[in-house]
């Protein structure tokens, strides 16, 4: 199958690569571009561990073709910290024990990052709904919710 040339911005860097049209964005990010922070969990868009940011919106990169990201702006967990400084969601997840095995964490962080821009001062209920596209098997969510509340405070204080 002929390959298509695509280019997009990945964590602030221009990248280009050749892909088959059927290649999923998550595979291209992980395997061709070597950014393995985003993971693969369910492959049916239920678990959210592959969540990345594309053009300012969260999406599940297991259910998007890489060719669909052509010309776009993609951010993954590797792009969250800026100039060596962790993002508030990263700090808060560490502080509040919002992760255990770490497998869901990149997706959780990317969704939290976007969610707190959509809703900077959420209630607990709004967090539960806003984060409902991401599964975690380890934490029972309680500390993730706490982490997002703390991250919201940190961001507001900035």
């Amino acid at each position: 199958m002929a390959k298509t040339h695509i280019q997009f911005t990945l964590n602030g860097q221009a990248v280009e690569t050749l892909v088959e049209p059927r290649e999923l964005l998550i595979h291209v990010i992980r395997e061709q571009l070597g950014q393995t922070g985003s993971h693969i969990g369910c492959e049916t868009s239920h678990c959210g561990v592959c969540t990345v940011d594309l053009n300012g919106a969260s999406l599940k990169s297991c259910t998007v073709l890489a060719v669909q990201a052509n010309g776009g702006d993609v951010t993954t967990v590797e792009g969250l910290a800026q100039s060596g400084e962790l993002h508030a969601v990263q700090e808060a997840f560490m502080q509040e024990h919002g992760l255990q095995c770490g497998f869901c964490t990149p997706g959780m962080l990317m969704r939290s990052y976007r969610f707190l821009q959509e809703n900077p001062n959420p209630t607990e209920e709004e967090i539960r709904v806003g984060m409902s596209g991401n599964l975690c098997r380890c934490t029972g969510y309680q500390n993730i919710i706490k982490s997002i509340q703390v991250a919201a405070q940190k961001l507001q204080a900035k």
Binding site: G37, H39, M94, H97
Partner: peptide, 17 residues
């Protein structure tokens, strides 16, 4: 606080895949 977390929150874990 956990020693593991800095790598996991920065996408630097090393899972088998």
């Amino acid at each position: 606080k956990r020693k593991e977390d800095p790598r996991f929150i920065q996408g630097k874990g090393n899972y088998v895949d």
